[in-house]
Design a protein around this nucleic acid. Structure first.
Length: 251
DNA sequence: AGATTCGGCGT
DNA sequence: ACGCCGAATCT
């Protein structure tokens, strides 16, 4: 059987694309698209391709069927982002179960996920999504972990400090309203039912002046290193943009 | 065994 | 309507 395997310019050199027409059955006439790595491994879906390429290639705009980059193909994420931002602008409180300050376009990263089918409500999902998230540099090395003051206690099934801290960070990032924790006593006994979704899963707490002073010191230090990082990033971006422009001129 | 092919589920 | 992937079928 004749195979028409064509080069795929949108992918790294050596990758081939193939389209085979179905010739029988109910779906006769439809086609399937496959890609072949430089080593010959066959790929039959975008997720499979993304898993293999990891963060080395951003497939967010890649159209699997045509094999081309489609600059306007981010609309699946855009719609959700629109919804979140609009409801936020109308004065509504963000639901921390679904709205998080992390990238929603992360299909390009290798992140094993546990699918939860047993629980009737969605209360536990965000807890899982935050679990194990860590700040990292471009080489994906963990930079450092954070620690948590005594006196903060988690409510819920995942009671690790790690997850709780990320939950609070999310709440601080998203909301304009104060973070009080779960004030309902009922929530402590059965968070799955009595959870206040615009508050993180921790018990109510108090903050001392001493803790505030310590934190101000940390923030000053952090700001300085952030400033350096942003400067470096800005230079890198500027370089990349001018390179893309030049490529566009000669195309 | 691996490769090919279509069905069919989920969105 | 289509992407994705399981599994029947072919070699």
């Amino acid at each position: 059987m004749e195979k028409r395997r064509s080069d795929c310019p949108a992918l790294p050199p050596g990758w081939k694309k193939e389209e085979v027409i179905r010739k029988s059955g109910l779906s006769a006439g439809k086609s399937d698209v496959y890609y072949y790595s430089p080593t010959g491994k066959k790929f039959r879906s975008k997720p499979q391709l993304a898993r293999y390429l990891g963060n080395s290639v951003d497939l967010a705009c890649f159209d699997f069927r045509t094999g081309k980059m489609m600059p306007g193909k981010l609309q699946k994420n855009k719609q959700r982002l629109r919804h979140d931002l609009l409801s936020l602008a109308k004065g509504g409180k963000p639901d921390l179960n679904t709205t998080l300050p992390i990238r929603q376009t992360a299909s390009i990263f290798k992140q094993p996920v546990t699918k939860v089918t047993s629980h009737p409500e969605n209360k536990l999902f965000w807890e899982r999504r935050l679990k194990g998230l860590q700040s990292s540099d471009v080489s994906e090395k963990v930079m450092r972990t954070m620690d948590l003051p005594k006196g903060l206690q988690s409510v819920g099934l995942d009671s690790s400090d790690d997850t709780l801290l990320r939950a609070i960070a999310s709440a601080l990032h998203m909301g304009s309203s104060p973070i009080t924790g779960q004030t309902s006593v009922a929530a402590e006994k059965n968070p799955a039912i009595w959870l206040n979704t615009s508050q993180p899963l921790c018990k109510a707490f108090t903050v001392t002046d001493e803790q505030i002073r310590e934190q101000e010191l940390k923030v000053h230090q952090a700001r300085r290193s952030l400033e350096e990082a942003l400067m470096a990033d800005g230079l890198a971006r500027a370089a990349e943009n001018t390179r893309e422009m030049q490529e566009g001129m000669t195309a």
